[in-house]
């Protein structure tokens, strides 16, 4: 479809009004921020809401506050470009900026928002297709159908989470704020993502993600984000690894964390990595290899894209993890 399907557009001018509209229309409404994900999905019939709630006129959601003392708070409507070019964030939370810079290209980054990137719909080549195409293959579990083509018989959807920012925020222990007419709640980011491409997030249909927060205690960690893709820009990740750590004066790892994206339905922290590395010398190749192996073992990419085989994507997760740890140990930031 070349045109968009019809819907009613709401343009609330306050955050209260916005969550009110979500509460009113719930599953029949979709939030519109940058539109880079939603509008494509609307054309494909992947989302069929009667109501679209545009956040374009809601003030106050696009602030980035960053200081070593108070930490980092990012309004959900901050654009990816404003994050990618933020000197303060680059200085104090480098892994976030590194991840943001790998997203698509500058035009899309100036449209796309932090909240939108975190809440990116999961992706699969059986799903990200036109209505004609999906109908021709009998639809799929994730939308309009009952069967999963990736894992026949599965009751879970394996579509891959493909956001780049999430792993960067995960390694910094970020929290997000969700607002609804029922009030606000803070959720640790690692509990926000669900391991099922159908449900995706611990977020009710009337909730709005308003803010991402990183504690000041995580300022000035070294950070690396590595992304597997075919082209030098534009592409979604086929695998992504974020890493952060503090390298103490003596050259030892502290608070080290790794997180993966695009290798399963949710981004996730590599459990156990912190414990393995804590206090070890940053040039401890044995420990680095163990963590890389762990990351590789925990990654579970499926055949959700024809572009690269799961085995290769896993291989690269391991190499990215190893190289990230080496890089952080060798030099800053």
């Amino acid at each position: 479809m070349i045109g968009l399907p019809s819907f009613r557009l709401h343009r609330p001018t306050s955050i209260e009004e916005a969550v009110g509209l979500l509460a009113e229309h719930r599953d029949d409404a979709k939030l519109l921020a940058g539109g880079t994900d939603l509008l494509v999905n609307l054309r494909h019939g992947l989302a069929t809401p009667s109501h679209i709630v545009s956040l374009a006129e809601v003030p106050g959601l696009d602030r980035i506050d960053c200081s070593p003392e108070h930490g980092l708070t990012i309004g959900a409507l901050s654009t990816l470009e404003s994050l990618a070019t933020h000197p303060g964030v680059e200085e104090s939370f480098p892994v976030v900026v590194r991840a943001a810079r790998t997203i698509s290209g500058p035009t899309l980054r100036a449209m796309g928002t932090v909240g939108g990137n975190l809440c990116l719909d999961t992706r699969c080549h059986w799903y990200n297709q036109s209505f004609f195409w999906r109908q021709a293959c009998g639809f799929c579990l994730k939308k309009d159908g009952t069967a999963c083509h990736v894992a026949p018989g599965s009751s879970l959807c394996w579509a891959a989470y493909s956001g780049d920012l999430a792993p960067a925020f995960l390694v910094l222990g970020a929290e997000i704020k969700l607002l609804s007419v029922r009030g606000e709640r803070r959720v640790p980011l690692d509990r926000f993502f669900l391991d099922d491409g159908l449900r995706k997030f611990d977020m009710a249909s009337d909730e709005l993600l308003t803010q991402v927060c990183v504690s000041a205690t995580r300022a000035h960690l070294r950070g690396v984000y590595s992304k597997l893709r075919i082209r030098g820009a534009l592409d979604y990740p086929l695998a992504g690894v974020a890493a952060a750590a503090r390298i103490a004066g003596g050259g030892t790892f502290h608070e080290a964390a790794l997180a993966l994206t695009a290798v399963g339905p949710r981004p996730f922290l590599v459990e156990g990595a912190t414990e393995i590395l804590e206090g070890l010398r940053a040039n401890d190749e044995d420990a680095i290899e163990r963590v890389a192996h762990l990351a590789r073992r925990l990654s579970n990419p499926m055949n959700t894209t024809w572009a690269m085989q799961p085995a290769y994507r896993r291989l690269r997760v391991g190499l990215f993890a190893r190289d990230a740890l080496r890089e952080m140990g060798e030099r800053g930031p």
Binding site: R11, G35, M111
Partner: peptide, 20 residues
Amino acid sequence: TVLLDGCSRLSCITLAHGVP
């Protein structure tokens, strides 16, 4: 691509009513 207040923007994935 068009410019919106001087910044580049992809108009095919922007709503006409979305940039008041």
